[in-house]
Design a protein around this nucleic acid. Structure first.
Lengths: 396, 396
DNA sequence: GGAGCATAATCTAAGCCTTGAACAAAGTCG
DNA sequence: CGACTTTGTTCAAGGCTTAGATTATGCTCC
């Protein structure tokens, strides 16, 4: 049973401060009065709270705005340079490390190619650690200003201080990536599945923006996803929820790389689509190959749309989300020309009432958003308590 | 984005009081000191709070317990007669109205047979209203002591004061059951899907007890379910989440009553199993027919288990719940002899890490739990604020 | 240019809430 | 009967939000 925690009068402050900070972060610059409306707090509280936050340098003033015939309002905003966050994308072909300010402006970037055959955990960890130092110095910030590091990896991340990673694609079994990184840096660290980090990016800055019950389906070579309930990523009991790629839509169907049969990924992932169409393409050529397939209007695509509709139908029947965002490079490519058909295929497989309340849209962000999304994990924690230095990072 | 609400110092009290009440309701009788441990609150707070609640008659003393060599502790418990709740089950063949005290002891019952062909909404509403009056007087309580009425209906219930019900089985389209009942009673009213109310019963009093991320799958003639995240029923954006019966597991497969193809219900619901086995049975005979099929070890059952495993796999991959409870009369019947096979079929279709963290168990409650679960909806609200008379019931 | 007005932000007193610590209550044991 | 143990209550202190009063800062109009 979801045990609510004991609350003291100080939690009230913490909660309200977080709410105010969120309003300012997602709503942009606002006056103290605007914040009263946005948060429901009284002017007095907003006044003292913003006073604190200005004093801590978390907020800065952002100009004046005339108010017809009265004292002009002072706009406040989150200080984008209050702190910085690092986002890491551990991908098939490269490790990508980026430094962002709080506005998610990229300040520095470091890329390390990895051979897709050889994903030595040690090597990956070394790349990440070197990358962190590199972007921090290149970005011209001091390590003390960095709020934390978010890392997006393929596969399932078990919670705990070690952040055990199970990534079949890499041949990783229980790789304690968290522990390995912690040995080389003292920055707060958050490790999560790359599809989840990207999903959070779509939720915060993409077409998922403003929703609180959302499913993000990411279709690349393979298929992943993020399930958002109540404004936050749903992770389930063992942090393995949201494995949309392995949703079975054809009992006993095509063999999937996971060893199972009939997974969504085995039909609508780019790799699977090309395979089903009889196209031979290595991972570097997939993108052009899929584009060519789309031009040719291959009948395989009709089937793909139909099966994707079935998958989306399942998501709607189980979650009835406000919005489903289809992203990932292949998802965007398919959606660009076939979104109408995808919606129709979904409608045909879904009960009317839940279908009506769910909208299906395309994502806005490309694969580079994995690192950005990973960085938002850190920002999420920052918005939670707005303290610095942040409390020691716990694995998520 | 899940907007947290503004909090004032009074919300602290409300929240802590609800927590204390929940601890007492689900944990049974406890001393004030026990409550300190259970809630994390200080002795002073527990003392004043229990003082209030005793004064309001929400709690009562429940005897003394020796404490080796010190003042004996006074046990406190929720007063089962502080208030009463009514639970209604609108089923295929009957409308069932029951009165419970807060300990969920049944105090009175009223049954009204309905012809399965003719589910006139007016008639059903009349049965419910008459039933409410009947159980209240038969139970010997005054209407003023009734905290509210929970109603479980088939189909999807749209939120709002009207509680529009979409129930294909009954041929109901947007029946404003909430409005119809409100015209005849002033008691707070909560209408929800019957599978959800029964799921909550399993969560509170069945094998789901103590978990907070749980999926309850109910297999009767048809298939329904409840998804519990964070200790509460997940309803999604349009209150249509958890339609487990219409999860597609065979794209383009058997036709389902919903008009779609390949739904789980079209394979593992009792009606579907019998149909697939070529057995003709009307709804009254289904139970014995399925029992006979089980005895005969029909090969249809192997297929059923396999497909059920696929369905469960989907639930695990999406939710990674702590526990999956299989209930409903057919579910219990199947599970009794085939649970091991069902688990094996699920494991074969599921990634290892999420499978490991999810346990699959049988439910404990029978179909009569729909009404009880409906009544718990009212209790849930009561535990939330422990005020009486309860705030005017909002539809859930 | 100054008085009056409008809007924004801050200050103040009051009312709740939890807490630790002191205190009262109610037993056991020798 | 007195020492000891455990349970439960009372009280002053410190935090919090709020409504309302007050101060700050600009505009408009004569």
């Amino acid at each position: 049973m979801g045990r609510p925690e004991r609350r003291t009068v100080r939690d009230v402050r913490r909660g309200n401060r977080a709410m105010l900070l969120r309003a300012l972060y997602f709503g942009g610059a606002a006056s103290r009065n605007d914040l009263c409306d946005a948060t429901g707090l009284s002017g007095a509280t907003v006044s003292t709270m913003t006073g604190d936050l200005l004093g801590d340098n978390v907020l800065v003033e952002a100009g004046l705005v005339d108010s017809d015939g009265g004292r002009p309002r002072v706009l406040l905003r989150v200080n984008p340079e209050f702190g910085f966050v690092v986002g890491v994308d551990v991908g098939e072909t490269q490790v990508r490390v980026e430094l962002f300010d709080l506005d998610m402006n990229e300040r520095a970037r470091a890329l390390y190619a990895v051979h897709s055959a050889r994903h030595d955990p040690e090597l990956v960890a070394r790349h990440i650690l070197v990358g962190i130092d590199s972007v921090i110095s290149e970005g011209g910030v001091s390590p003390g200003q960095v709020l934390g590091v978010g890392v997006g990896v393929p596969g399932i991340v078990e919670p705990g201080p070690d952040a055990l990673v199970q990534a079949e694609t890499f041949g990783w079994q229980a790789v304690p990536l968290g522990a390995m990184l912690r040995a080389g840096t003292s920055l707060p660290l958050l490790v999560d599945n790359g599809a989840k980090t990207m999903g959070q990016a779509e939720l915060w800055f993409g077409t998922g923006r403003g929703t609180s019950d959302t499913v993000v389906m990411l279709i690349g070579s393979r298929v992943g996803g993020t399930i958002v309930t109540d404004g936050g990523i749903y992770r389930g009991a063992g942090h393995a929820a949201g494995e949309i790629g392995h949703l079975k839509i054809v009992a006993g169907g095509r063999l999937c790389k996971c060893g199972g049969r009939g997974c969504l990924e085995a039909y609508v992932g780019a790799e699977a689509i090309l395979d089903r169409a009889g196209v031979v393409a290595d991972s570097a050529e997939e993108e052009t190959a899929l584009a060519r397939l789309l031009e040719s209007r291959s009948p395989v695509l009709d089937e793909t749309v139909e099966l994707l509709g079935v998958g989306l139908s399942n998501l709607i029947h189980l979650f009835n989300p406000e919005r489903i965002v289809i992203g990932g490079w292949a998802g965007l490519m398919l959606g660009k020309s076939l979104l109408v058909d995808i919606r129709a295929a979904t409608a045909a497989n879904t009960l009317l009432q839940p279908y009506k309340t769910t909208s299906i849209v395309l994502g806005r962000l490309g694969p580079e958003a994995v690192a950005m999304g990973a960085a938002t994990l850190v920002i999420e924690q920052f918005l939670q308590d707005a303290r610095f230095p942040a409390p020691v990072g716990t694995m998520s």
